Amino acid sequence: MTTGLTVLVPCYNEGPQVETAHGELVEALKEIGELEILFVDDGSTDDSLDRIRRLAETDPRVRYLSFTRNFGIDAVMAAGFRYAGQPWTVQCDADLQVPPGEIWALLDKAAEGYDVVFGERRGRRDPLVRRGGSAGLHWAARRVFGIDMPRGASTFRLVRTGLARTITELRLPWFIPAVPLVGARYAATPVAHRPRTAGRSKLRLARLTAHSFELFFGFSWRPLAAVYAAGVLGGALALVFAVLGYAGLAGGPVIAATQLLLTGLTVAAVALVGRYLHRLLRDTARPRTYYVKDANLPLLPEDTLTGGLPSPQPPARAVRQRG
């Protein structure tokens, strides 16, 4: 039985970092005979894809997929896990803030019988805002929304490839809380973390905020339960103040303030219910997560824009011979 490893490397405008990541990964994992380095180009607009192609020409361990546009990290994971050729897959960012040598820590921990091993970053070297935001997000998910978030979990993780495919096919908005949701055996192990030496993070505040909402509303029904409770409380308050107003025990300003409060709660409730409806409609429509425009491995027809059909030139007018 093969025990090889696929290293999934997401790329979006990484430029020279492509060769740097390849070199460090090959050096760190040279003891693994069945090694595959799978670059997934998320619609880069620089020369990242050209650099990956050149690596693939000289190193048969390099495989790649290139999207038709930027689809985001969720699409990268879905495609990467789907086309990974080895039974274990480790996700490793091209910025190499976690040194490739730390992959061995994940492998050693997985040997104890785990399906998923997360790298818990020691002395995380990201900006304070990023670290604080991440810690706050995980705290809110566990304490406020009741979501089972594995402690220490990060995007630097080792997963059984078959399990990763099962999770991504569920089309859930987050991978991390889906691991305990399906009953997988998981653990976290400490790994080193270093400052970014090239490029800059592709995640922006707006995207991080949207991603947080996907977590909260994708894995928890508590906000909807809170709306129900607020509705009952608001109805009771309205009834009480209506009686007090009729009896002349509450003046106009108090009643007006109460009406304004109830109106605000109503608007918030409608917005929250709309957010859940959006979630349900999105899951029902289930559009394609990504489309691949170029690869050096066999593609499934549904992952291409043309459905696997060739793209010949359109018919042209016949050239008439002059007599």
Rank of each mutant, 00 (worst) to 15 (best):
A230E: 09
V98R: 00
F118W: 09
V116F: 09
G72R: 02
A78R: 12
P87F: 05
T3L: 11
G308L: 06
D42Y: 00
E14C: 04
D93W: 09
V117K: 08
V182I: 15
F81C: 08
R320P: 04
F217N: 02
C11L: 12
I73G: 03
T304G: 01
A242R: 12
A250N: 01
A178W: 05
M1A: 13
M1R: 12
G15Q: 08
L55F: 06
A188C: 06
P315M: 08
A285V: 15
L261F: 14
I32L: 11
T263E: 10
R82A: 13
N13H: 05
A295R: 04
G132P: 06
A141W: 02
Q259L: 15
G136L: 15
I52S: 00
C11N: 07
L297Y: 07
G15D: 13
A229T: 11
L237W: 06
A187L: 08
L128A: 14
G15V: 07
F241S: 03
N13F: 00
K109E: 13
V292Q: 03
L8F: 05
L5H: 03
A271H: 11
A164G: 07
E120D: 15
I103M: 12
D47G: 01
R286D: 14
Y83Q: 13
E24G: 02
I52V: 15
T58C: 05
R124H: 10
N13P: 00
F71V: 12
W174Q: 09
L29I: 07
G307D: 03
W174V: 04
R69S: 08
F39K: 02
Y83E: 10
G308N: 00
H211G: 11
R320Y: 06
L215T: 01
R322A: 15
W104T: 08
S134C: 09
D59P: 07
A135F: 11
R196I: 15
S134W: 12
A257E: 02
L49Y: 02
A78D: 09
L260K: 07
W221H: 11
T189G: 01
A56Y: 05
A135P: 02
L49D: 01
L277E: 11
A236E: 03
R275H: 06
V129G: 07
A238L: 14
H278P: 00
S212E: 05
L96G: 01
D283S: 13
